[in-house]
């Protein structure tokens, strides 16, 4: 059963808002958001984390940014500098916590989604295979910029 355009748009709005609230709950850093942009070309990522979304709406949530940004977020949250494998593992877990919070938030609006374990994406990876993609820049106060991409199947 495919979604009507109206339902699909409601789901997208709920998922974006659910992601912002989750980010606020997980990361104790003030941030400013850009307006969501429709991505027309393919997406290239140097470093990021990808979480699969299944259930009422299918797609992927991707957080991307420089490793140093993920490192600063980890240091703010856990009070210790992170490097190497622990930084990679933290980055995956950050994606998991944000997507987990998102799934909790949208459940309150009657949207049921499940999430997959995070996949770390690195080294100029091209993301493809989606029908629609939205990108939002998150400017984390005194830390820098992180991107949120919502890719819909």
């Amino acid at each position: 059963m495919s979604l009507t355009v109206k339902e699909r748009n409601r789901y997208i709005t709920e998922i974006l808002n659910g992601t912002y609230s989750s980010l606020k709950a997980v990361v104790p850093i003030n941030y400013e958001l850009s307006k969501p942009k429709l991505v027309e070309q393919s997406i290239h990522i140097q470093f990021g984390v990808l979480i699969g979304i299944t259930g009422d709406i299918k797609g992927k949530l991707v957080l991307d940014g420089q490793t140093s940004i993920f490192g600063s977020v980890g240091e703010t949250m856990f009070g210790m500098p992170l490097e190497g494998e622990m930084l990679t593992s933290f980055s995956g877990e950050l994606g998991n916590m944000i997507a987990g919070g998102l799934s909790t938030n949208v459940a309150e609006s009657g949207i049921n989604i499940d999430i997959t374990s995070p996949t770390i994406v690195q080294g100029n990876t091209k993301l493809s295979g989606y029908k629609k993609a939205l990108h939002v820049s998150v400017n984390l106060e005194n830390v820098g910029e992180m991107g949120i991409c919502l890719l819909l199947d």
């Binding site: 916590m97 944000i98 987990g100 909790t104 459940a107 049921n112 999430i115």
Partner: peptide, 23 residues
């Protein structure tokens, strides 16, 4: 990281004693 009510209920019914939401 997932804390929706149905998930918590399912886990408790399965036999878990408590449910901590990350972080």
């Amino acid at each position: 990281a997932m804390g929706q009510q149905n998930m918590v209920l399912e886990a408790i019914q399965a036999g878990a004693q408590d449910f901590i939401v990350k972080p």
